[in-house]
Design a protein around this nucleic acid. Structure first.
Lengths: 348, 348
DNA sequence: CTGAAAGCGCTAACAC
DNA sequence: GTGTTAGCGCTTTCAG
């Protein structure tokens, strides 16, 4: 009883079976007026009987509107991008759009070009550029933006006049983290940075550095190290930092995964957190509440970020032509500091 | 200098500009023979100059082949589904296919129907059903399978004759975990199960139960509790279990997130892991190596799972019609036990 | 080697 | 109310 692959039922067959014109079937499908109730019922009956499903493809071709949004992403194995995608997918669904997903194999420019054009060839109505800004991988997209005939929304980058951007304020988030440590009375605050080719890592690093200097604490090179976001890299970065800055009493780590490693390394070296070393992370992943000890962190709701991006894009799609250009709205979200045990100054 | 939305360049315009027929342009595009080199060059030049990009949509319509695979997933905020999707996206890319992504808002059946039909309406060439098997949410898809005129590949379910399935052997993985604990000399082994409406949770639970009984250890209800995969739920489950089974000396936890909570709760109750309580997780997420202590876990490479699913599906798509039905290949992957500090029996 | 005609499945504009 | 005629952008015959 193997299921032989059946041919798709077309509107033409429905029309013939119901003994009406193709047009009338179309009218029924689209709930248009001017169809006699009896005719409509007959058509509907045939549609049901033949299990007819209209082809969105053919529709898209003629309407010049695919109701698909192209999403270009990278690094889905990371928690951040996948949560963002979750938000995008959910919101798109809700608003009646499909997601055409493309993941870049690397963060480099080269791959991106072909992949983006592949997406555009499929006639997506708009594009959400959810690739982290690494090196200058965004340059050429921005350069060519005028040549693409669909709207774009960019995620996670500095506000820039004339560009629709949806992003968390990483600088503000990092500032909160460091200021919190200062308030707790810590002064010798180190930093484990993310890879500084990433915009987000640079923002967090810059905020650490600036807040420190504002507090009258000179920043030296031995006070920070760089990881690549992963727990593995965080382990090495943590060891180096503890080594080169032994009097450090607190550390701001650029993401929760690396902060986890910091906790682990500290423990292995006999340091008590937060008594000997306070630790603050970034991202606010769900697990951070169950680290040992629970991790103070800066939370950004990336699901929400994805939702907002879709709303923004669809607003642009459905707005009248002229208004689009006037003021590409920037959505600038504020992260939130979650204080837990890992950063509380204990009576020494 | 606002970028006014341009109209798309069509093959017709290229033809006119190059003073050839639409046909010839098409031949050039598709690298077909029988085009004079001079003509070809002229056409290519015009294509370049006009920045012409053929419409994949129009192509799909006539070729009855979209080169898109529909992916139905759910719970992208979880690590597992998103890693799987990462594998799917990467592999599809490599093989020249695009991914049309659909995420179910819940695991229930109702939403699924409309969403699946939406995907099919866009003429995907095949579907990867990556929704975890929860309750009987898979029943109706399987029932209606014969009515869909494209091939399906199912992820993460029991092998079943006549169905193309790509899955890890959860039962085998859980067996490894429990046998490892027995080998270490632990006998009073508890279990924190995932939500038992999930197939994967049931498999892991069943393996625990069976291995215990084979070892002559009767299983009682107080020896296990149930969580919902999240660290939060794992915390409650861990507390309950420690409470109702105080003499427990080891525990097999159904995923790493909940295992993390088990470590955290044990620590807060003054229990030393693994001295007082050995812990084994499941999944092998990257962070598990940095838990305190590093977690023994059963690793499954979900990226690989996604890759295999795509390979399987595309093999079906590109195979001659008859051979498809004969023997839908099942890919049955073996997870791997990673032994770390959390489960090592220490000289007491 | 090249072009003209037909048509993929559907909707838009107009007739009747 | 309903049918007819076009045509979305492209490929596929089949003539020349």
């Amino acid at each position: 009883m193997a299921a032989t692959r059946k041919k798709r039922v077309t509107i033409k067959q429905v029309a013939e079976e119901a003994e009406v014109s193709i047009q009338t079937v179309s009218r029924v499908l689209n709930d248009m007026p001017h169809v006699a109730p009896a005719t409509r019922d007959r058509v509907l009956e045939v549609i049901e009987r033949l299990q007819y499903r209209p082809s969105a493809l053919a529709r898209s071709l003629i309407q010049q509107r695919s109701h698909m949004v192209g999403v270009i992403t990278a690094g889905l194995t990371y928690i951040g991008p996948s949560r963002t995608l979750d938000g995008i997918a959910t919101q798109a669904e809700t608003m009646g759009y499909s997601v055409l997903l493309n993941e870049l194999p690397t963060f480099a420019t080269n791959d991106a070009k072909a992949i983006l054009h592949g997406s555009l060839a499929r006639q997506v109505d708009g594009v959400i550029w959810a690739v982290p800004e690494v090196d200058n991988n965004r340059e050429w997209v921005l350069d060519q933006l005028a040549d693409f005939h669909v709207p774009f929304v960019f995620l996670t980058m500095n506000p820039q006049p004339g560009l629709p951007i949806v992003s968390y304020d990483n600088h503000a988030g990092a500032r909160m983290a460091v200021e919190h440590l200062l308030q707790q009375g810590f002064r010798r605050i180190g930093h484990v940075a993310g890879p500084l080719v990433w915009w987000e890592a640079r923002e967090r690093f810059a905020a650490w550095s600036e807040v420190m200097q504002s507090a009258g604490i000179p920043v030296e090179d031995r006070m920070w190290t760089e990881g690549n976001w992963s727990s593995r890299s965080g382990e090495a970065a943590a060891r180096r930092l503890l080594d080169q800055y032994p009097e450090m009493d607190a550390v701001f780590v650029a993401n929760d995964q690396m902060a986890l490693s910091m906790l682990s390394v500290a423990r292995s070296q006999g340091l008590h957190v937060p008594l000997d070393l306070a630790v603050v992370g970034f991202d606010g992943i769900a697990e951070s509440d169950y680290f040992s000890p629970p991790l103070t962190t800066v939370h950004q709701d990336l699901h929400q970020l994805g939702c907002r991006a879709v709303q923004q894009l669809i607003a642009m799609l459905e707005a009248p032509q002229e208004s689009i250009e006037l003021e590409p709205a920037t959505v600038w979200l504020e992260p939130e500091l979650i204080v837990r045990e890992s950063s509380i100054r204990l009576a020494g």
